[in-house]
Every structure is written in C-alpha cells, then in structure tokens.
C-alpha cells in the first residue's frame, strides 16, 4: 500500500501544478510529476488477457485520465467542454472493452447531448475571452488536488482490498461473461434488473428529472405569459403611450361598431 500512497501523492502534486499554474512551465512540471506517479504505478503493471486487449485498455485509460485532467485544468471553457467529451469517449471505450455495450452506447448518447448543452451554456453565459475572474480562477487548487486524490486513492484502495490477492488477470478471465449484465444478450438482462430490483430507484430518478423539466417550463412560462397568467409587464411604455393595449383594442373596436349599428 505504501507505493500506492506515493503514487497518489505525486499525482496530487501533478494535478495541483496543472490547476494552479496554467503556463507552459506549470504544465511541464505537472507532466513530470504525473510521469513519476505513473512510473511508480507501472511497477504494479498487470497484463489483462490478450495483449491487444491490454494495449487498448491502457490507451483508453490513459486517454480518459489525460482528458479528465485537461477538462479541469484548461482555462478556456470551450476547451474544457471538448476535453470533457473526450473523457466520455475514453470511458465509453473502456466500457465497450469490458463488454458492457449498452453502458458504452448510453454513456455516449446521454453525455454527448449533455456536453452539447454545457457547450451552449458556456457560449451563452461565460465570456469567450475569459475576462471574467470566475472563469479563470480555480478556488484553492491545492485543497482540490489533495482531496481529489485522497478520494481516488480511497476508491482504488477499497477496490484492491476487495480483490484480496489482487490477481486482476485471473479475475478478469474468470469474470463470467455468459451470465448477468455481460452476457451476449445483455441489454435485456440490464432491463430486467433495472425494472425489477431497482424499479423504485428508477422511477424516483425519472421523477427528479421531470421536476427539473417542470421547473424550467415554469420559469420560461412565467416569462412568456402562457402558463401562469400574464407576465408582469405586457405592454411596453412606448406602445402604451400611443395606443391602447393590444388586447383591449378589439373590444373597443367592437364597441365602436356596435355603437354605429345602434345609431
């Protein structure tokens, strides 16, 4: 476990440098620390299954990690969004390698849309030139880096402890791909699990999303005036100065016509 702690520490330093010093020199330092950490990690290198599988796995893993670090450390919001997307591509590749096709495709579908929305938010809300201080600064990079790595090493430590001997190769080979969610017809298996064991959680999550949707519709509807009665200011000052409000105009016209016909 000692070497894993060292790995976590050097990776945390790398993350801190990447976050705190957005210059070429800072990125270089971050890269050096990251390389040291990864070299230490390489001592625990375990080939998983076929060499091609191993190669692809490590490529996707490296891509995912790199993209994640870039997504949090880049200054430009658009680039952050793009790296975020790359991170999900890497994750999806890892899932596909593990045989979880449905999760891979769903990750791409859900997060590609989500990233696009983030992209639009960035375009609409953030300043593209990055003039605003809140777009540039990262609050307490050291704390963020240390806490993040502590969390990550906690997860890794638990995983390693759970695996007992940690014989990853044997585990992945023995991982039964003919049953459960990894079986060939596994989409149906996932659906069966989701809609039987976890049906209440699923429904609750759906309702939460629906609540968000209704909230958005309420806000928009209030502004447009067709959900909750009229908006507060229906007629602009210039219009009201010249003519009567729009809605009243037809009734007055009708009254006029009625008056004429009566006379």
């Amino acid at each position: 476990m000692g070497d894993l702690a060292l790995v976590a520490l050097s990776l945390a330093l790398a993350l801190w440098m990447a976050l705190a010093f957005p210059t070429v020199r800072g990125r270089l330092g971050a890269a050096i620390f990251a390389l040291v950490g990864l070299a230490l990690l390489l001592a625990r290198f375990v080939p998983i299954g076929h060499w091609g599988f191993s190669l692809l796995f490590y490529i996707f893993a490296a891509l995912t990690l790199l993209a994640a670090v870039c997504a949090v450390s880049f200054r430009h919001p658009i680039y952050c969004a793009v790296w975020f997307g790359v991170m999900f591509l890497g994750t999806s590749g890892l899932l596909l390698l593990a045989g979880a096709q449905f999760l891979a495709a769903a990750t791409l579908i859900v997060y590609a849309g989500a990233i696009l929305v983030i992209f639009l938010f960035v375009l609409m809300l953030a300043q593209p030139e990055g003039r605003a201080a809140y777009d540039l600064a990262i609050n307490r990079p050291l704390v963020v880096a240390l806490l993040g790595m502590a969390l990550a090493s906690l997860v890794v430590g638990v995983a390693v402890a759970l695996m007992g001997s940690g014989d990853l190769a044997e585990l992945s080979a023995a991982g039964d791909r003919t049953q459960g969610v990894l079986q060939p017809g596994h989409v149906a298996a996932i659906a069966r699990t989701l809609f039987s064991r976890h049906v209440i959680a699923l429904e609750v999550v759906g309702v939460i999303l629906l609540v968000a949707l209704v909230g958005a519709a309420m806000i928009v509807g209030r502004a447009e005036g067709f959900l909750l009665g009229p908006p507060r200011q229906t007629v602009s000052r210039a219009q009201s100065g010249q003519t009567s409000p729009q809605v009243e105009a037809p009734s007055s016209a009708i009254a006029q016509v009625a008056g004429e016909s009566a006379s």
Partner: peptide
C-alpha cells in the same frame, strides 16, 4: 456483427457528429 446495442451505438455516433 452481433453487437447487442446495435442501434444505440448508431445514435451515439450521431450525437458525436453534432460536435
């Protein structure tokens, strides 16, 4: 062949194309 998530993967690539 035999990709169980077939059409979902198609939708996923369509989503990436928008970028």
């Amino acid at each position: 062949p035999g990709l169980d998530a077939g059409i979902l993967l198609f939708l996923a690539f369509g989503g990436i194309g928008v970028f």
